[in-house]
Amino acid sequence: MAPEPRFHALLHSIEATEAGLESAGYIANRQTATAVYLAHHLRKPILVEGPAGVGKTELAKSAAAWLGLPLVRMQCYEGLDESKALYEWKYGKQLLYTQILKDRLGAELGEEPGLDAALERLHGFGDLFFSERFLEPRPLLRALREPEGAVLLIDEVDKADQEFEAFLLELLSDYQVSVPEIGTVRAAVPPLVVLTSNSTRDLGDALKRRCLHLHIGLPDAKLEGRILAARVPGIEAGLRRQVVRFVQELRGLDLRKLPSVSETLDWARTVVLLHARELDGELVRATLNVLLKFEADIETAEARLGDLLRASQQEAERRPAAR
């Protein structure tokens, strides 16, 4: 039996997983931690869906940092194909070699009496050109070949085409691929695979069936407060509670695009940079465009600014909730 990978010991329980991610700066709720834990123990990819900016990509990065594994990232886009995802032949190098060999080839072929025999000879050289030394591995192959394992992030898979999805499926079912000219490449240590999707289209059932499906939504106040504390350590506790409450209230409005965690973090950083001690009308008005991307949404929020501020100020006056 193959020896356990080194990082295995770190993933000995769901609690340890949660704490480990937190040590890398990622605040996971219990289900997210469970997903990472199971992904390892069941050797199954995680498919993370949810709105933009809720920490889908960051989950993979933090897991890699915590486990001390290389992060191999595969950013998906329309038109992505195997040659960009798996491997490509180094054509330039092949060409260079061809030219260097040209004279020799000429000489060698010249001695051959017939066309058939010449072809036969050329065939021998073909194997040389399609060998390891001319192979350019792309992310998926690199991840399979990491000797100690890796975290493979297949980011925004919904942007790739359906054919690519089908191709992924093969790879993810047994963590091996076959390169016709070289043979089968099998991962010594299966990578921990995280696929993310912003749900711009529905992914195929087959892919979903292969994966653990984790939905990360917008966080509740408690979780968002913890994320803020982890990511913007410079913010003072009272102000942090105000910011969180303000954003949570804001999400209750009828907006075209609700602010996500990433916007909350950006806003908090802005507020800290401005040396604010608490939220007030002027400050919020001046910085609202960090939180809201649509003009119409900013107008909606400004119309309700009084209520929003009142709620967040009450929050600051409350004693911090026991945690």
């Binding site: 219990r30 834990y37 199971l38 123990h41 529905d202 939905h215």
Partner: peptide, 29 residues
């Protein structure tokens, strides 16, 4: 998959079981 997952996380904790089965069985919002 669900059976394997339950084997890994155990049955003692109802909340954990819920998280686990949701990850394995429910694939849309």
């Amino acid at each position: 998959d669900a059976a394997r997952a339950v084997e890994v996380v155990g049955l003692a904790d109802r909340g954990r079981l819920r998280d686990t089965l949701s990850l394995v069985l429910a694939k849309t919002a």
